[in-house]
Amino acid sequence: MTVLAGPRIVTPDGVLADGHLRVDGATIESVCPARPAGEVQPVDGAWIVPGFVDIHTHGGGGYTFTTGDPEQAQGVARFHLAHGTTTLLASLVTSPPDLMVAATRAYAPLVDQGIIAGLHFEGPYLSHARCGAQNPAHLREPSTDELARLIGTGAGAVRMVTIAPELPGALEAIAYLVDHGVVVAIGHTDATYEQTLAGIAAGATVGTHVFNGMRPPHHREPGPVFALLGSDSVTCELIGDGVHLHDGALRFATTVTGASRAALITDAMAGAGMPDGEYELGGQGVTVSGGVARLTDGGSIAGSTLTMDVAFRRAVAAGLPVEEVARMAATTPAAAIGRTDIGALQPGRRADLVVLDAELRVLRVMRAGTWVA
């Protein structure tokens, strides 16, 4: 039994000052508002928050998920764990069918081992007009046959798929995925407001990096942005790096959705945490300059160099309360992928937590009851 006491503890019910948290093995046993009698492990720092949950990341620390290499995938997970991300999906980009199947087969054991929480296919069923840094050579219309092959290969590893709902066959694909326990996100889409609502009615429950990679809103044609922000059943991913979204847009979106429907993500690529230079994303060259990743050919934003701890600090600096940001960085994204066993400092959940200093920088990380070196 480990008993942690000291700084403010962020729980689903609010902030506990001078409380304590009991960890039994890999699980949180209790969270209490008073200091306990007996031996405790004091925690230096200012905050204890739940371990971050990133449901959209392509790489980091010089490693990438997009090649289907399990050693690269483990490198990504180690890098982001050091920044407080205790759970993450491996996001792949638009690719040929054989690479998608090979990556699914290679990553399924990592899901079984708990190194990653599942696969997220961001593509290939996306809009040519809004494909951004996705490789247009591999875009295609939704295919339930292809999805059946991926789901069968993954045996539970496929967790989320991003689809543009206006494509032929998209609504059928969305319904098929939902029937097979896969979360569907709407993104990289040129859909109208009505087409987006049709995708939501078919079962889509996540908006992929809302505002980015989709038809911009207009007061006479609100498009997917208004449909996603305004739908109570949809969790909206937000990239809070100041590049993809102005801080004012981040704050505005969160006032619409509330923290219970806003999920901070990184959309990070291999250049996260690395020097400026040349990288690769889905077979396309990416140049990172001033910490901003863009396609070398064409200049489209190509993911980010963000980590979740930086996103956390930026959201607080934008004016959002720490307890709401903790929900956006952990509880809400965990719920979006159906993981009620993580994402909050609450009895019965896995003991994943991050100790932050007064400037909200990571001091220590615990995953499944064990402090990370």
Rank of each mutant, 00 (worst) to 15 (best):
L81A: 11
T189D: 07
E221Q: 14
F79L: 03
G203N: 05
D190T: 10
D267Q: 02
L81P: 06
P217H: 15
T153N: 04
T94W: 01
A46L: 05
A315Y: 10
M214F: 02
V310R: 15
G187H: 02
F79K: 05
R361T: 14
V355Q: 03
S91G: 00
S304P: 09
G68M: 02
R130L: 06
V111G: 04
Y193H: 15
V111F: 03
T205I: 04
R349K: 14
A272V: 01
A329G: 07
G123M: 07
G230T: 07
A204I: 05
T2F: 09
P33K: 05
I239K: 00
T57C: 11
E278R: 15
R215W: 11
Y193M: 09
L81E: 11
V256W: 15
A37N: 11
E237T: 05
A77T: 08
M100F: 02
P222K: 12
P321Y: 12
T331K: 13
P7A: 04
E172S: 08
P136N: 11
H188R: 10
A34Y: 15
I174T: 08
V362E: 10
T287M: 12
A191E: 11
L250T: 13
H219V: 00
A368E: 12
V325D: 05
V182Y: 08
G285T: 07
G19T: 10
P222V: 13
F312R: 10
V354M: 08
G68L: 03
G282W: 03
I163E: 07
M308W: 03
E141D: 14
T205R: 13
G223Q: 10
G283A: 08
E122Y: 02
H218M: 12
A73E: 08
L92G: 03
T85A: 01
T86L: 10
S127H: 06
A373S: 09
T11Y: 01
I337W: 08
D267A: 00
A263I: 09
L238M: 10
L21P: 03
D13T: 13
V101D: 01
P12E: 00
